[in-house]
């Protein structure tokens, strides 16, 4: 694994595409937001015979936490000036998600679409996205959703930070830009909050609790469908060989997908109200809950 990662990193470092200039900062804030198009899980049904997901006819949406990342980016841009670029990798129809991002207010969109990219695991996805970010070049901040609702891995954001050698802060629930080019990030941990200061450029992953994303706007519809607003890049544009892309290059293989057994079982307490209450209190005491 480490050698694969090292090979990929070496490829990026050796490339003629350049890393962002870390010295140039802060008059304007240039933000890249990664967007994944996912099936709307609320509409996905399970085939009772095969137990597989029935994705046919299921509408696609922007991954919800990516939408939060985009909202955070738009809010920062409104407060501090700058640009927001939405970046996605996927089949040609992923353009729909980017058009929606433009309708919400992103300035520009980039879609990485090529048969060669298909089947990439999180590592190769992050590698390909990192390469594209290097090609975009001008950025101070990368915002990602914590995880996608279809894969739930939460790996791509941190892996991009790894490839680009950027500081990363995950699980952001609040962002505040400080003078001098640093960001105070409120991280939502399981039972506490943590405030972290990070110097830009950096990569932040956000959770759904950070904000309420705005609706896409009808005023932006005409512009968002303009070809000039969406760049479509292929493997050739990223100057990457087929061997480092897609399913073939991915070290992860999915062996099986299954629904986990629900081990938590409810217990019915019999008796009248008084008996039930007493039994419940005894149980909770036994469990040291009260």
């Amino acid at each position: 694994m480490s050698t694969i990662f090292q090979d990929l990193v070496d490829t990026l470092r050796k490339s003629t595409l350049h890393f962002a200039d870390t010295k140039k900062l802060m008059n304007t804030l240039n933000i890249i937001v990664t967007i994944k198009q996912v099936p709307d899980t609320a509409e996905v049904r399970i085939d009772p015979k095969t137990n597989s997901l029935m994705r046919e006819g299921v509408p696609s949406i922007i991954n919800p936490e990516d939408r939060n990342a985009l909202e955070a980016a738009l809010a920062l841009r409104e407060a501090h000036d700058g640009t927001v670029t939405a970046l996605s990798m996927g089949p040609p129809q992923a353009r729909d998600a980017l058009e929606e991002a433009l309708c919400m207010g992103a300035d520009l969109a980039v879609l990485l679409s090529d048969r060669a990219f298909a089947g990439a695991d999180t590592l190769i996805t992050a590698f390909t996205l990192s390469r594209a970010i290097m090609k975009i070049a001008k950025y101070d901040l990368i915002l990602c959703g914590r995880q996608a609702i279809d894969g739930d891995t939460a790996q791509v954001g941190p892996q991009i930070a790894g490839f680009l050698d950027l500081p990363q802060v995950t699980y952001a629930e609040g962002l505040e830009l400080k003078k001098g080019g640093s960001l105070i990030v409120q991280r939502g941990l399981e039972d506490s909050n943590q405030w972290v200061q990070v110097k830009l450029p950096a990569l932040i992953t956000v959770t759904g609790r950070i904000n309420h994303p705005r609706y896409p706007n009808l005023y932006n519809v005409a512009d968002s469908c303009d070809d000039a607003k969406i760049k479509i890049w292929t493997a050739k544009d990223l100057q990457l060989p087929q061997a480092m892309l897609g399913l073939g290059a991915s070290p992860t293989t999915v062996k099986k997908i299954f629904e986990p057994d629900r081990k938590m079982k409810g217990e019915m307490i019999p008796g009248d109200e008084r008996q039930m209450a007493e039994a419940l209190i005894t149980k909770l005491k036994e469990m040291h809950v009260i």
Partner: peptide, 15 residues
């Protein structure tokens, strides 16, 4: 439908 028309419908549906 054109891309614009589909997008407009999607925005209205979601709202």
């Amino acid at each position: 439908l054109t891309r614009q028309q589909k997008l407009a419908r999607k925005i209205a549906r979601e709202f």
